[in-house]
């Protein structure tokens, strides 16, 4: 960090102190001025952030009853009253999730290949990276608003939204993975005179395949969770039912839906654990 001569001077000083039985661990930031500046900046930010929050404590106190009611409803979730809506909503969410993940992963593979600097020419690389950046910046719900405006209400807008988000997520990780592959097999297969597709098939695919499967399963999980949200803006799935129940303070139904979501996420996690073990 700093130059060696002052460093060893400081070391001598610390050794001398040590002989007198005085020792403190080295601070993370060696320069005292930077240390203080950083502390001051953090303190300043805490004060400013605190000033920007406007907590209406009387409103919070009023809401505490509802908070308690919500917690209590987890002990007595109501699956029955709105069972029809819950069932169709969940079915829609699950089908949207599956369809969007399949479409998204299939589209993400070419984009991911294009976004890996070590196997793609620069123009393709830039184009694919732009798609990834766009897809990753905006939350699913914002994209859903746009697609609902284009395609109208319903699960199709949801599928397109989730597929679009999947492309950015998968393509970025896939591209990073490809960029991290070992160079030697790439060179060896190219040296045999293989075409670009053969080269990808024999040198790249075996190296990234297990992780690609793992990531797809992880994205399936994420897409399911997101499918519960985008219904709020009319893109299909369980979200609309959940939104309605919360707005009606019908917490027993909300708790039932949330519990179902938690159980499905848990199941998919166990499942993907098995599949991952099996593919390795």
């Amino acid at each position: 960090m700093s130059n060696p001569s002052t460093d060893s001077g400081a070391d001598q000083q610390r050794l001398a102190l040590l002989k007198d039985g005085i020792w403190k661990p080295l601070p993370l930031i060696r320069d005292a001025r930077w240390r203080w500046a950083l502390n001051a900046a953090v303190l300043l930010y805490i004060v400013l952030a605190w000033l920007s929050v406007d907590v209406n404590w009387s409103r919070v106190a009023q809401g505490m009853d509802r908070g308690v009611a919500f917690m209590a409803s987890f002990l007595q979730p109501d699956f029955v009253t709105r069972s029809g809506e819950i069932f169709t909503g969940l079915k829609e969410s699950l089908t949207m999730t599956l369809a969007a993940t399949v479409i998204g992963v299939l589209l993400a593979i070419p984009v991911g290949l294009g976004a890996a600097r070590n196997i793609s020419p620069l123009p393709v690389y830039l184009f694919c990276r732009t798609i990834i950046a766009l897809s990753r910046t905006f939350q699913e719900i914002i994209i859903a608003i746009l697609f609902v405006a284009m395609f109208g209400f319903g699960p199709l807008a949801g599928v397109v939204t989730l597929a679009f988000a999947t492309i950015g997520f998968m393509a970025k990780l896939l591209a990073e993975d490809i960029e991290d592959t070992q160079k030697e097999p790439l060179e060896a297969i190219r040296a045999t005179g293989a075409s670009w597709l053969q080269w990808v098939n024999y040198a790249v695919q075996p190296q990234v395949m297990p992780r690609l499967i793992g990531l797809s399963l992880y994205r399936l999980d994420i897409n399911f969770r997101e499918s519960a949200v985008i219904g709020i803006v009319g893109a299909g799935g369980i979200g609309a039912t959940l939104n309605t129940s919360i707005n009606r303070y019908d917490y027993d139904t909300s708790a039932a839906i949330l519990l179902l979501i938690i159980v499905i996420v848990l199941m998919s996690e166990y499942l993907s654990g098995y599949v991952r073990k099996w593919t390795q």
């Binding site: 040590l18 002989k19 007198d20 039985g21 005085i22 020792w23 403190k24 661990p25």
Partner: peptide
């Protein structure tokens, strides 16, 4: 907090 007595520090040295 790494507040070791100075006898410990001398022994460590």
């Amino acid at each position: 907090l790494r507040q070791f007595p100075s006898s410990d520090i001398k022994q460590a040295l």
